Amino acid sequence: MVAATAVTWVGQAADTVGVPVGDLTGEDLAAVGDSDVGVVLAVRVAVTGAAATLLPAVVAGRAGRWRRASLAGVGVAGLATWPLAGHPVASPLPPVSVAVAVVHLAAVSVWLGGLLTLVAFLLRGAHERVLARILPVWSRWATIAVGWLVATGVGQATIELGRPGTLVDTGYGRLLLGKAALLAVVLAVAAGQRCLVRRGTAAARPGVVARAAGVELVATAVVLALTAALVQTPPGRTAGTEAARAAREGVAQTLTTGLYTLQFDVYPVKLGAPNSLHAYVYTSRGEALPVAEWTVSLALPEAGIEPVSVPVETPEPNHGSAEVRFPVAGEWRIRFTVRTSEIDQATVTATVPVR
Rank of each mutant, 00 (worst) to 15 (best):
V338C: 06
E216N: 11
L118A: 11
L217Q: 06
V58I: 05
L226T: 10
A69W: 14
V251Q: 06
V119I: 11
L230G: 06
G330Y: 08
V208P: 00
V74A: 12
T254N: 04
G26P: 01
E27M: 01
A213H: 06
T257Q: 03
T337R: 13
P88I: 14
V100I: 12
A106G: 12
G162S: 06
A184C: 05
D34V: 14
P268C: 08
A145G: 02
Q253H: 08
Y260T: 01
L255N: 05
A50V: 15
V76I: 14
V76K: 07
E128Q: 08
A299V: 06
G125H: 06
L55D: 02
P20R: 01
L93A: 13
L259P: 01
R140P: 03
A279D: 02
G178Y: 13
L187C: 08
A60W: 09
S70P: 04
P353N: 08
T351E: 00
G162A: 09
V96T: 13
A60H: 12
R325T: 15
A213M: 09
A46Q: 03
T16F: 01
T257P: 00
V296R: 07
E331A: 15
L182I: 14
V130K: 06
A203P: 10
G200S: 09
A279I: 11
V100Q: 01
E128M: 03
V96M: 05
P353I: 09
L84M: 12
W111A: 05
A210K: 14
G171H: 10
A210H: 12
V108A: 07
A329I: 08
P317F: 12
A63M: 09
L298C: 09
D15W: 02
S284Q: 13
P317D: 06
V218C: 06
V185M: 07
S297Y: 03
T337P: 05
L71D: 07
V348L: 05
V208D: 00
V312L: 10
S139M: 04
G147W: 03
A204V: 09
T53R: 15
T256F: 00
A72Y: 13
V98G: 03
P268S: 07
T241Q: 10
A350R: 04
V308F: 07
A303E: 10
A288R: 15
L71Y: 09
E242H: 15
V308H: 07
G114R: 06
A228V: 12
T152R: 10
L300P: 02
E313D: 11
L230E: 04
G153D: 03
A288Q: 14
A191R: 15
H87L: 09
V222Y: 05
V354A: 05
W9Q: 02
A77I: 08
V296S: 03
I343P: 04
V39Y: 10
T340Y: 03
S309V: 14
L24I: 04
G11T: 02
R339M: 03
S341M: 07
T238C: 04
R129D: 10
R355I: 12
E302K: 12
L226F: 15
L175W: 11
L24M: 02
V251H: 00
